[in-house]
Design a protein around this nucleic acid. Structure first.
Lengths: 191, 191
DNA sequence: TATGACATGTAATCTGTTACATGATTAG
DNA sequence: CTAATCATGTAACAGATTACATGTCATA
């Protein structure tokens, strides 16, 4: 079996399955949070779960509690955990920042429980490195937009992008500080 | 023919076709800008153009310049222009802010040329109205994340979202100010 | 016991991705 | 002339959306 390409929805499911859940549980969580971007329709989630099970990344067991409705609980297999970790730890490129930001944030959100606080901090550093050249690239496009022939709304759209990535860079530094403090506290505890 | 659902890629093409272009031109623009989110592969763009033509929203004419390669130039039809305008002017809901932000920004970027500066300002006001309750909803989730059982990375992800929407709200006000200044200047010119 | 919410799914359709194919034109 | 690039596409496939289908359990 070659590595098998898993779409974003699949990884979102893997990440959520760090806590064993039924398809219905997952759907509820997806539709009530921003994860609904990855789809919250049964026609997407159930087939995706079946594919993950087919590929040996999760395993479902039918729960037979007395007086309970039939529910199938899915759990990560060892293979599923390692696939999830490998996906989280993927290096972040300039292109990712532009097109897969949501996925990057999802990886970060999962990183601490699936791996460690150190892995979370490493992801943030990787993001910061990708962010710097990306922001520079955006800023370089600004002078061309100052041409009066370019409509104001097009220039403002670019400015919106620049601001949002600046804000993301600030958050990255803020988040890194928190992990650094945590690290120091942990060392302090040992003394 | 019922209104015919047009996917995001279709609207992105309609917007870009405010300037008549060939499929190849469009592909180049898409792959060199952030529009690549809507796909830059020929297998998506050419079929999408054909669908738009089938629905009477654009019309292609083969260009026969001497010593030029065969190129088909697509233009918006009257129906295409009105479909584009109607899409741009769609009201913005709280849900849109969470899941279709990219599309909203695309609509804004097109708004001034396809409609007017007034329409751009109206879109910004609509965005601002949707943003306020959405931000409130995000902020309400924060206390639950302060529970030490919740991993830091999950809380930080939420904070990232809050910050990015705060920054978007600031940009909205900044952009609105610019349109208001423009409006005053226009009135001043008439005096 | 009937109504509605729970839990799971399927089928038709559409769109996008990937990878390949084709001819025409320009550069070396 | 031949290699690259321009400009246009096609075919096979995977995945998502929408809408519907099924049975189970709680409650009124």
């Amino acid at each position: 079996m070659p590595p098998a390409k898993i779409p974003a929805l699949g990884y979102a499911l893997l990440g959520m399955l760090q806590k064993p859940s039924s398809g219905y549980d997952l759907r509820k969580i997806f539709s009530s949070t921003s994860m609904k971007t990855y789809s919250d329709s049964p026609g997407a989630i159930y087939p995706a779960l079946r594919r993950l099970e087919r590929d040996g990344l999760i395993r479902g067991t039918v729960e037979e509690g007395s007086g309970m409705r039939r529910r199938q609980i899915f759990r990560l297999t060892a293979k599923g955990i390692s696939e999830l970790r490998q996906w989280i730890a993927l290096p972040i490129t300039r292109e990712d920042v532009g097109s897969n930001l949501k996925t990057i944030m999802l990886r970060f959100a999962f990183s601490e429980t699936a791996m460690s606080a150190d892995a979370s901090a490493a992801l943030l550093k990787s993001l910061d490195s990708a962010l710097t050249p990306y922001l520079q690239h955006l800023r370089e496009q600004l002078p061309a937009m100052m041409n009066p022939a370019v409509p104001t709304s097009a220039r403002l759209s670019l400015e919106c992008g620049i601001r949002s990535f600046e804000s993301l860079a600030e958050w990255t530094h803020y988040a890194l500080e928190i992990y650094e403090k945590k690290g120091r506290r942990k060392i302090g505890d040992k003394l």
